[in-house]
């Protein structure tokens, strides 16, 4: 290098000097000799949180084995499986459980279909302003939050809401769009769409446009490109997104509570009732544990059959 050394008044940028200071400080607090334990130091808080979660689960497991005595409103001293028997033997819980699982499956399928189209448009669209518009449209409701959005639907889809008024203009009598199974599915799909798009975009970005062009030049029409190339290549993203949507839907509380009109409860609503309405923590705990178990088993089955998709994080495909 023919360059002369740094000039007298040369100074490193502020953030370099700050970092130097931090490093010196770190050397004092956590000497270099401890370097091989640094990894543990950084995951310690996360481990602590997971540990607390496990402790909580143990406590829930304990209370799920105790029966509430409605004469004293105290849990029983000894353990029994009464709460589980009650949960499994009561028709309403089976109805609610089946509704949760089937609604989660339906929501997952519908969300993935819509999210795939949306994510594909987002990835492939050439004009930057269209992409920005698509992103804003997607994330604006995302930032607004689930409950406020559900209230929004109550206003838009109500008997005197915008949709019914528009229908009224073409002579259609107001109809009940809310407070039924369809409304709950609609609300859930709308709620889950940004999550699914977010998880699908990386998977679709990883598919080079050239691969689609190549498939076309090799003789594949668009539907066949979609079926033989796009779908299999997007599989990891679809599985990841599907798992997230399914588990979030399965355990959702607010949408069935608000858009279901009280007759479309999911398991979470039943659990809430036990904890906060009838003060039966034992039964609530038993239901909660059964939900955790059912969710884990279903996710485990998907992992076994399809692999973990993008959630495998670099593990085997």
């Amino acid at each position: 290098m023919s360059e002369p050394g740094p000039k007298q008044d040369f100074r490193y940028p502020l953030h370099w000097r700050l970092m130097d200071g931090v490093e010196r400080l770190a050397d004092i607090v956590w000497p270099r000799s401890m370097a091989r334990h640094t990894g543990w130091l950084f995951i310690a808080p996360a481990l602590l949180l997971v540990g607390l979660l496990v402790l909580g689960l143990v406590q829930i497991a304990d209370s799920s084995l105790r029966v509430l005595d409605t004469a004293t409103f105290l849990p029983s001293e000894d353990w029994s499986l009464t709460n589980y028997e009650k949960a499994l033997g009561t028709k309403v819980y089976l109805t609610v459980a089946w509704r949760s699982v089937s609604a989660a499956a339906l929501t997952t399928v519908l969300t993935l279909i819509l999210a795939f189209a949306y994510a594909y448009a987002l990835v492939r669209v050439r004009k930057a302003w269209i992409r920005k518009a698509l992103l804003i449209t997607l994330f604006l409701p995302f930032f607004i939050g689930q409950v406020v959005r559900a209230y929004g639907w109550l206003i838009i889809l109500g008997n005197s809401g915008m949709v019914n008024e528009a229908l009224g203009l073409i002579g259609v009598a107001p109809m009940r769009l809310l407070f039924n199974y369809g409304a709950v599915i609609f609300g859930l799909v709308q709620y889950m769409l940004p999550f699914a798009v977010l998880l699908l975009v990386p998977a679709l970005t990883a598919i080079p446009e050239e691969t689609e062009t190549a498939a076309g030049s090799l003789g594949a029409s668009w539907p066949r490109i979609f079926w033989h190339v796009l779908l299999p290549m997007a599989k990891p993203g679809l599985i990841g997104a599907g798992l997230v949507v399914f588990t979030l839907t399965l355990t959702d509380f607010a949408v069935p509570a608000m858009l279901g009109g009280g007759s479309q409860d999911f398991i979470a609503n039943a659990i809430y009732d036990q904890f906060f309405r009838t003060a039966d923590q034992g039964l609530g705990a038993a239901l909660a544990l059964m939900l955790v178990a059912a969710g884990s088993i279903l996710v485990g089955l998907v992992f076994m059959v399809f692999g973990a998709g993008t959630l495998a994080m670099g593990g085997r495909k």
């Binding site: 409605t70 028709k91 309403v92 509704r99 009732d273 036990q274």
Partner: peptide, 14 residues
């Protein structure tokens, strides 16, 4: 009460 609530739910959620 919790039994009544449960019964009511059972009818309404059916």
């Amino acid at each position: 009460e919790s039994e009544w609530f449960g019964k009511f739910k059972e009818i309404m959620q059916g």
